[in-house]
Design a protein around this nucleic acid. Structure first.
Length: 487
RNA sequence: CGGAGCGUGGCGUAGUCCGGUAGCGCACUGCAAUGGGGUUGCAGGGGUCGCAGGUUCAAAUCCUGUCGCUCCGACCA
C-alpha cells in the first residue's frame, strides 16, 4: 500500500480518508456505512473514553447497560422523537434464516409479531425502565450513563464522522426539579468543553441550539462546536434538557416531599467516536495525524539507528534503560525495532501522529544524549541523557499546549462578526464562522440555509444581541448567533 | 432516492474504444549489502479480471441482466 497522502490543501476529503486508513485507525466494514475500528484507532477512543468516564464518575454518575433491541412501539411514544428518528431506524422483522436451494433466505415463518428496532439512541428503553424504578422523590436523582453502540441508517457516511453504527456514551438522568435538570445539562456541557479543550486540544464554542437544530424530543439542546481545518463546523457533543417530555410519554411520576404527584425532569447527553474524526480534522497536516499527547496511544516512539550487529548491541544497551525509565514514568512508549530504514520509520510514525520521536544512534551513545523530534512543529533537538524523563514530559506538555493554541488561533482568525448579508455570504463561501444577529425566526434560518448552505451552529452563551439587527431580514436581532457550514 | 464514477493478486492501477488467454507499482517471501528523512541489488510466490447469462473458434474486452462500493446532492451526532 502506498503511504502517499492526498493533498490536504486541495482535497481534504480524500486526505481524510487516506489518513484514517493509512494510519491504521479504521477500515471499511463489509456493510455499507460500517467501519472497523482498528487497534490503533481504538486505543485512541479508549483514551478519550477513560478521561470522560473518570469525569462523570467523579461527579456522581454510574455506568449501566440497556438493551440494543427496542420495541418499535416505544419510539412512537414521544411525537417529536419519532419524527426525528423514524427515517433512520434499522428494523428487525424476523428471527431466523433457513437454506433453500443452496441459498440462505429469511424464514418467512419466523416473522415477529411485534417488530423491534435497533436503538438509534436509548431514551425510550431507559424511560420505560425508569417508570419502574421511580416512585418517590427519594429515588431521585438517577444519574446513569452507558457506553454503547447505536445504529442510524444514514444516507451518506464517512469514517468516524458519520457511520451507520457508532460508539458513544449516552447519559440519562432523572431529576426532581426543572432547575436541577437544567444544572445537570449545563454541568455536563462544561465537562464536554473541558474534554475537548484540555485533552483533545480542540477549542469549542458552547451554546444553545435553535429549535430547528435541537435534538428530537428535547426542550433545549446545548452543544460544543468546533472548527475543522477546512473551516467547517463540527458538532462535537450535545447535552439535552428533555424537560418532562419523556416522563410524560412513559408516564413517569414521583411523589414529592409534600405528597403531590409530579412528572420527572430529564436530561440526556452524548459524545461519540465522531470525536476521533474531530481530532484528525482539527490537527492534521500534510504528513498525517498530529495526536495530542494526553490522548495519544503512543506518546513517544523510539527509533534505534545502527549499521551492524556490533552497533546494534551498543545502541540496544543504551536504549533499553531509557525505554524502561520512560515507561516507569507512565509515558506511553514504543520502541520500533522493525527492520525498515530509519527514514521510513520517521515518516510512518509521523503519519500515525505520535507526538514526539526519540532517535538514538551511535553518535548519541557517544555523547550521552538523544535526539528528540517534535511532531507538531518538526523541531529536532539534542537532549542530555540525564533528566531525559523530565525533558520528555515538558515537551509533551508543550506539544499539547501548542496544538491547542494553533487550533484556537486558526478558529479565532476564521471567526468573523459581520453586519451585511454580502459579507456574510463571502465568508461562508470561503469558509469560516460568522457571528451576526438573527431575528429568531425559523423561516429566516431556513432561507439562509437554502441560500448559502450555512446553518446556525449555536446561540453562544456570550452573545450580545442588544445593538444588532438580523443579517437577513434587517429586523431587530433576537439573538447573536454563529453561522457556518457544517459536517 | 436523484447525478457521476468504479469493481482486474493484499492495496493502487494498465489493458476495455479496435476480442487472441493478463502487465506494472507498492506490499509480501528469501539472500546480500545499506541504515541520522520513505535504501539498493538479485531471486521468488500470488490474479480463471464483482457475479450470472448470452454472442464467438476464442471474452477482462462486445451484449443483457444483476450485485456491491466510492464520490456529489436531499437527511443527520
Amino acid at each position: 500500500m502506498s503511504k502517499k497522502l492526498s493533498n490536504i490543501d486541495n482535497d481534504i476529503s480524500a486526505w481524510y480518508t487516506d489518513v484514517v486508513t493509512k494510519a491504521g485507525l479504521a477500515d471499511y466494514g463489509p456493510v455499507k456505512g460500517t467501519m472497523v475500528i482498528k487497534p490503533y484507532g481504538f486505543q485512541l477512543w479508549d483514551n478519550v473514553k477513560d478521561v470522560f468516564d473518570k469525569m462523570i464518575k467523579d461527579t456522581g454518575h454510574t455506568n449501566a447497560y440497556f438493551p440494543l433491541l427496542i420495541p418499535k412501539s416505544f419510539l412512537a411514544k414521544e411525537a417529536e422523537h419519532v419524527d426525528g428518528f423514524a427515517k433512520e431506524c434499522a428494523v428487525v422483522t424476523h428471527t431466523r434464516l433457513k437454506s433453500e436451494n443452496d441459498e440462505i433466505i429469511v424464514d418467512p415463518d419466523s416473522r415477529l409479531e411485534e417488530e423491534v428496532i435497533i436503538r438509534p439512541t436509548s431514551e425510550t428503553v431507559i424511560w420505560s425502565m425508569y417508570k419502574k424504578w421511580i416512585q418517590s422523590h427519594r429515588d431521585l436523582p438517577i444519574l446513569i450513563n452507558q457506553w454503547a453502540n447505536v445504529v442510524r441508517w444514514e444516507m451518506r457516511t464517512r469514517l468516524f464522522l458519520r457511520t451507520t453504527e457508532f460508539l458513544w456514551q449516552e447519559g440519562h438522568t432523572a431529576h426532581k426539579t426543572k432547575e436541577e435538570a437544567e444544572k445537570e445539562t449545563l454541568d455536563i456541557l462544561e465537562l464536554y468543553k473541558k474534554l475537548a479543550e484540555e485533552y483533545l486540544a480542540i477549542p469549542v464554542y458552547t451554546g444553545l441550539k435553535t429549535d430547528a437544530e435541537k435534538f428530537a424530543g428535547a426542550d433545549k439542546t446545548y452543544c460544543i462546536e468546533a472548527m475543522m481545518l477546512d473551516k467547517k463546523a463540527l458538532q462535537a457533543g450535545t447535552s439535552h434538557n428533555l424537560g418532562q417530555n419523556f416522563a410524560k410519554a412513559f408516564d413517569v411520576k414521583f411523589q414529592t416531599e409534600d405528597n403531590n404527584e409530579e412528572y420527572v425532569w430529564a436530561t440526556s447527553w452524548g459524545i461519540s467516536t465522531r470525536l476521533i474524526g474531530a481530532v484528525i480534522l482539527a490537527h492534521g497536516d500534510k504528513n498525517g495525524l498530529r495526536i495530542p499527547p494526553k490522548i495519544a496511544p503512543i506518546q513517544i516512539v523510539l527509533i534505534p539507528i545502527f549499521r551492524d550487529e556490533k552497533q546494534r548491541k551498543i545502541v540496544e544497551d543504551y536504549i533499553d534503560p531509557i525505554t524502561k525509565e520512560l515507561k516507569q514514568n507512565e509515558i506511553r512508549t514504543f520502541i520500533d525495532w522493525s527492520d525498515s530504514s530509519p527514514g521510513y520509520k520517521f515518516n510512518e510514525w509521523e503519519l500515525k501522529g505520535v507526538p514526539a520521536r526519540i532517535e538514538i544512534g551511535p553518535r548519541d551513545v557517544e555523547s550521552n544524549t538523544v535526539i528528540i523530534a517534535r511532531r507538531d512543529n518538526g523541531e529536532k533537538l539534542s537532549s542530555p541523557r540525564h533528566d531525559l524523563t523530565q525533558s520528555v514530559k515538558d515537551i509533551l506538555d508543550q506539544i499539547q499546549n501548542n496544538l491547542y493554541n494553533e487550533a484556537k488561533d486558526f478558529r479565532d482568525n476564521n471567526t468573523h462578526s459581520v453586519n451585511t448579508y454580502g459579507e456574510f455570504k463571502d465568508i461562508i463561501k470561503n469558509g469560516g464562522f460568522v457571528r451576526c444577529g438573527w431575528d429568531g425566526k425559523q423561516e429566516t434560518e431556513l432561507k439562509i440555509k437554502e441560500d448559502t448552505k450555512a446553518t446556525i451552529r449555536c446561540i453562544p452563551f456570550n452573545e450580545n444581541p442588544n445593538n444588532l439587527t438580523c443579517i437577513f431580514s434587517g429586523n431587530k436581532a433576537m439573538h447573536e448567533v454563529i453561522f457556518a457550514k457544517s459536517y
